[in-house]
Amino acid sequence: MLTAAETDALMLSLRVGIWCVVGTLPPGIAMAWLLARREFYGKNLLNGVLHLPLVLPPVAIGYLMLMALGRNGPLGAWLSDTLGISVAFTWQGAVVASAVMAFPLMVRSVRLSLECVDRRLEAAARTLGRGSFRIFMTITLPLIVPGILTGAILAFARSLGEFGATITFVSNIEGETRTLPLALYTMAQTPDGESGSMRLAAISVALAMAALFASEITARKLQHRLGG
């Protein structure tokens, strides 16, 4: 039904999207907590830097990442020298690119939901003899699950649609970094590529709809459990 190239692009997009969500979740929750619950010097600056990927052209983000994380970049050289890791021009690099783009979306929705948590419930848990970490795990975290879910869906969607930062940072290598949007772009540049482009566009629509439905069903189940 799908050609080998289409399957490759679809599976790669899924893999990058899932790893992007998995990778942004823990730091996203930590950052959201920091911004929602703590006051510290430079908080506004941190918040600003965090939102840069939302306002900068993705190509600029990709270029900055290439400069920093490329084989000759300071961070990239350190990574490959000490840990033997290189993300430039690999699918892991595509994950990093979409994670950077998705991070502010993840942080925003988790933070919003953290700010809605009734802190009096946490105070009640303290009088019941529980320490801060245990309270976070048993009270706060379960109550912000809807926000985490929203953040995860946004991050996944951002990753599926990510184009500019990815193509700039890890290029357009078939089977390695050619995700659905990149494959679609490539096909559209090819003579007689109209039908191939349409097929890839249709796959993208189907994937996006499936993700939306999945989140809708999960959200409804959660709503039922938490009682709104």
Binding site: D118, R120, L121, A123, A124, A125, R126, T127, L128, G129, R130, G131, I139, P142, L143, R225, L226, G227
Partner: peptide
């Protein structure tokens, strides 16, 4: 002493039951 170490039972006006 921290509230979690005080062993004080507190029944709040608004109950504060954990909704989940």
């Amino acid at each position: 002493v921290k509230p979690e170490k005080r062993r004080v039972g507190y029944v709040f006006q608004d109950c504060r039951l954990f909704p989940h």
